[in-house]
Design a protein around this nucleic acid. Structure first.
Lengths: 535, 535
DNA sequence: TCTGGGCCAGTAATAAAGTGA
DNA sequence: ATCACTTTATTACTGGCCCAG
């Protein structure tokens, strides 16, 4: 079904579909019925397909033919299904709209193709957008009169658009991206929301002779480089059809970096760079746990491992699945690993397992549901969450273990920044509120002195795990508090140039925190920059 | 408002917060308050940020300061801003939901972090989802009673999720992806909607010793392989901060492939393969024009070119921009090239520029708007569009000229199409109407015998340009009509194994076409195979 | 009892489509 | 093709109520 749903839409559309639709859903997909399903994504990755599927609904195609019949069948009808314009598409559409509110058919077509939308969808979007604009214009029109361009588009921000990945990584040397979905180090885990988001990117840089894990969280980039020579052993197991789980055993911790974004430059474009910093993973697990598990493209991973020629455990050879699809089941990773795999072929595995279960693994963390949480963490900081501008996308999760005390939760969560304290608002960028507050004191071993106020709960930021409260930190977030001690950890072992404590300098954690606290919600940043639209 | 809204959810939840809260917000953090701005997306790409903004509604920041003012302002209030769960998130959420409809706070947190959502958002989602389920269950409940699990999740499809890129490419050999945004061959152009969509992927396969352009359109994959040895010369120019434009001059045409998807396999997972086929670009330009321009990661492209050691034009060395950001302006590609660049730093440029300009190039196609279109093509098949499942994502554009005439604009923007002739509204641009079908007879030299029925116009499917009508072909689409003659073109030159006419075998083009036509919308392919979910 | 959380029902608001003209 | 509505879906809020401290 899914397919169709996606499909035809419209057209036939017409639809009527009336109620039955629902019915229909129920039938086939019913459950999902909800729209969700079909997303427009369409083509893209297979994954895409999936995603949408969820909705199930639509009996797929019912084409029109049956049209009449439709009603009947169960399922059927296709209902209208609702597509969802992705954020990227939306941005583009708004931009197009600001230039021309009523694009011609030809132009619409172009837009549709550019954005991967159906023409019908685009047409409707413009129509609805026009209606919306009319209302808005009406309202403020009185005041302003700037009918056209003004409102929606965010100026420059909009521009940045497709640059994407390379911009994020901003490495000087060429790199080979390893499509991946999950990275786990101890209980710390990061899941790529979507490949597109680039919130988790793994790549090999031959020039630097290292493997790198890049994470984008709350508007900032974080990365850790693993020199090839620190990789003692590797292991590989096929996971799902085209994916595998590669485990890297290191002799010493990786080198951590934090992205620096300097407003500099005359223009406005910030200058981005990387500066070494202390371990920004929750509980500094990346420093403590020398095993890194990465789930990603089987072919690419196998290739990487082969080139490292260190693969020991795997047995000599890495066998991959044939290119074609195969039922997921076949490959069965070891139990441990299996847990890491996020793709669920079978939906069920992943999610709950942990729930009441144990985590097993090497951790002993309790994690049971909420109750266990760290007191502080758990506290009711609720109000804050609002603060965070956009959430930080990524998912970081800290799992329990080494870090033991942290969150009771299963590995997944954990917030990001926990550790560092990003200078508050500092810049703008994304705005951070920084919130950063004081994360819970003891959750993390580190020294960070920050006072924890409730604020803290939500405030944090970076990739590491998060903390209790809701939201993700605002974008700014930034550095970890880096515990002074941090350097010790791997510093001694691996000492590279990254030891720098710069973090501290940049932001006085305490001040920030207090700040945030006081206000209660004062988030400092209004987001304005992004798109300030001109009124 | 928003802020809070977003915020705290829960917890504090309680909420009450009464109004004052809002007020409060306004106070301190106020600005941010509006949630709107913040979408949850947060982090991801820069683009994200934009997207949301769209709503504009909120005046951007009204910050709270004025808080009180709020009411006043026109606009006002920040409204609640509405976040949108991305398709990926949705899929995950549905899966989580199917396993547990009421996750505990801890679990919710984990989920939130995993998906990059705010906890509040997740909480609300589950709550609303529960309500929805209740309704649904109620309805069908009578019938079925399968309360829990059944409905929503799509079974396996859901699982496939993140597989993404590798699955799409399904190459047996390891490949190195070259992040790219635009590919142009003659007037045929393809733009990556988003990196994530993988609708345009360029990669190097050392093992096969070739460079490959992969395109995903309408559910099918298309690719053309360029053997290293057919690359006579290369050229490289920096385009935007991290991107460059690489031009490849070939001695002979690439080898074209079409993805085959066989429902096969016992399970249900389709088996995907590649089979050679004739040029699927619009007007078979890839066969005629031996210059390929790819805009993508400067670093990666430079690396590739270096390895090919054929770069001639560039001058000896390829200099890249420093990793940090720089104003887009600095790099100025040659005028010609500039046009290709799609990134707009400044939003405006892109779109309209070309509008009325000429196309030049070797074609003489009129292209003016619709009128010109090939009769067949143009025909009113519109209804079909609906057909297409999800749209095919990609954007293809046929640009017009030899690039020369292009755009006046500064490098950055450009829209994608502008330069080329965007046919005046005509067509789309991107889409060419061309549709292949009979395209204008003379526009393209090839013989392709395909019968052009109007169907053909849209039916085609592939990436090439599209044709007039809307939609992209349904996923199945498939093969191009391949003009029998096709083999001649490059076949003689490059003859590889791809000459096979298999296409014909697989699908009787005529039959398909007629089929579709007849029905009006009967698209034959429901996409089904891709993911048929099992009921 | 109050408080923190959470759930639910109900309800705005808005987005994506459909309808009819 | 557009417009004015209308539908349906989705997201978020508001309140009421419950439960555990």
């Amino acid at each position: 079904m899914s397919m169709d749903s996606a499909v035809s839409p419209a057209e036939s559309s017409s639809t009527h579909s009336h109620d039955e639709d629902e019915r229909a859903d129920s039938l086939d997909s019913s459950p999902c019925s909800s729209t969700s399903p079909l997303t427009p994504d369409d083509s893209p990755s297979p994954s895409e397909a999936l995603g949408p599927e969820k909705d199930s609904n639509a009996g797929p195609i019912r084409t029109r033919s049956s049209s009449a019949a439709s009603s009947k069948e169960s399922d059927t009808k296709e209902k209208r299904k609702r597509s969802r314009v992705t954020p990227e598409q939306l941005a583009h559409l708004e931009r197009y709209f600001s230039m021309d509110r009523s694009p011609t058919a030809g132009r619409r077509k172009e837009i549709s193709e550019t954005l991967g939308m159906q023409e019908r969808q685009t047409q409707i979007w413009f129509q609805n957008r026009r209606a919306k604009a009319k209302l808005q214009d009406g309202k403020k029109g009185g005041r302003n009169g700037i009918a056209d361009v003004p409102p929606d588009m965010p100026p420059e921000l909009a521009a940045g658009f497709d640059v994407s990945l390379q911009t994020m990584i901003h490495e000087c040397e060429p790199v080979t991206i390893i499509p991946c979905t999950d990275l786990s180090i101890g209980t710390w885990k990061r899941i790529a929301t979507t490949v597109s988001r680039h919130d988790l990117v793994a790549y090999v840089c031959e020039a630097k002779h290292c493997l790198t894990w890049f994470i984008h969280s709350a508007g900032y980039g974080f990365k850790m480089e693993i020199p090839f020579d620190s990789i003692v052993e590797t292991k590989f197991v096929n996971a799902a059809p085209g994916t595998g789980l590669a485990s890297f055993f290191l002799s010493h911790p990786p080198i951590f970096f934090l992205e620096t974004i300097t407003p500099s430059s005359s223009s406005g474009a910030p200058v981005r760079g990387w500066k070494p910093c202390s371990d920004w993973t929750e509980g500094m697990q990346a420093t403590k746990v020398l095993r890194h598990d990465l789930v990603g493209s089987a072919v690419q991973l196998a290739h990487v491992l082969r080139n490292l020629n260190v693969n020991s455990s795997t047995g000599a050879e890495i066998s991959l699945h044939p290119p074609s699809y195969r039922p997921a089941a076949d490959v069965s990773p070891t139990p441990t690993q299996a847990s890491i795999l996020g793709f669920v072929e079978s939906p069920h595995d992943l999610i709950h397992p942990s729930r009441s279960e144990t985590y097993g693994y090497d951790l002993q963390r309790p994690h049971s549901g909420d109750s266990l949480q760290h007191p502080l963490t758990h506290s009711p900081r609720s109000p804050d969450e609002g603060l965070i501008p956009h959430s930080t996308s990524p998912s970081l999760v800290a799992s329990g273990a080494g870090y033991a005390r942290m969150s009771p939760h299963p590995p997944r969560n954990f917030s990001l920044y926990p550790d560092y304290a990003e200078p508050p608002k500092a810049h703008s960028y994304r705005v951070q509120e920084l919130d950063v507050p004081g994360r819970d004191a003891n959750s993390f071993p580190m020294t960070h002195s920050t006072p924890l106020t409730r604020r803290s709960s939500y405030g944090e930021g970076p990739p590491s795990s998060s903390h209790s409260s809701y939201s993700s930190p605002s974008p700014h977030i930034v550095h970890t508090p880096f515990h002074s001690s941090s350097s010790d950890y791997w510093g001694s072992q691996h000492a590279t140039n990254h030891t720098s404590p710069m973090l501290s300098g940049s932001l006085p954690s305490s001040s920030l925190l207090s700040d945030s606290q006081g206000s209660g919600m004062g988030y400092s940043q209004p987001v304005a920059h992004h798109y300030s639209k001109l009124p």
